[in-house]
Computed example of a mutant assay.
Amino acid sequence: MTLRGDLPQKIPLFPLPGALLLPRARLPLQIFEPRYLAMLEDVLKRPDRLIGMIQPRPGEAPPALCAVGCAGRVTAFSETDDGRYMITLTGVSRFRLVRQVSGFTPYLAAEVSWDEFERDRGGPEQDPGFDREAFLALLSRYFVSEQLATDWNSLKEAEDELLINSLSMLCPFEPEDKQALLEAPTLADRRKTLTTLMDFAVRGGGEEVLQ
């Protein structure tokens, strides 16, 4: 059974703390655990080749899963000499977890709903209120505070969505902050959340900036 746009109702899940995948973005992953090697083998047999990236909820035992994740299509993979796989997931759409499904596989799977996230399957989002100059100035201070380096020319030339989503995925935020970035309804909301997180880091966490 499939939903609109041939998105399946059931997908395999890859719970990974701190990992963030967003629509149309690319996430490189290293697969080496036996259960996820089995998952990859099964996924590559499916026409959609989808894996649902989702975060465990911190501090809960046994670990529960966050309500929202993002499914990515395996668009590249290669095997290493020692049996690991290097894969790339390209984000397709966020999803809401409906219920986990028990089966005979060693990995998790779940029924999911795509209904809230139809916009994810369209073209790149725009952010009309984006003040790029002010954002890049804050980003520069954030990179200094975190001792990070980057290719500034590429950042300056990147489209709004690529810039905001790439930074959301790559910056070393806490898992709960990554989840907030994932669940931001629009690109503008994600940019505002990202700005808040960077500002908080630049201030050294000494002032509460989350409203």
Rank of each mutant, 00 (worst) to 15 (best):
F14E: 06
L163P: 00
F143H: 04
E208T: 12
Q147E: 11
L155I: 08
G122Q: 12
S93L: 01
L136N: 02
F95Y: 06
W152Q: 03
R119L: 15
A109S: 15
E116I: 10
D160S: 03
P106T: 09
E60Y: 11
D189I: 04
M53P: 01
A137R: 15
L89T: 03
P28H: 04
A201N: 15
M53T: 10
G69C: 03
E133M: 02
G205A: 09
M86D: 15
D177Q: 09
A71L: 01
L22M: 09
P172D: 05
G18P: 06
K156Y: 13
F143M: 07
G18I: 02
E146I: 01
K10C: 13
D131P: 13
A71N: 03
L22D: 04
L50K: 03
L20E: 02
S166H: 09
T196A: 13
G52K: 01
R73D: 15
V74P: 00
G206L: 14
S102L: 14
V68D: 12
S113H: 12
A149E: 08
D127Q: 13
L97H: 05
L138Y: 08
D151K: 03
D151G: 02
L65F: 08
K178D: 03
K192Q: 12
R119S: 10
V202D: 01
D160Q: 06
T186M: 12
G91V: 12
L182Y: 06
A158R: 02
L182I: 08
L163Y: 01
G5L: 07
D131I: 08
L65T: 13
M1Y: 12
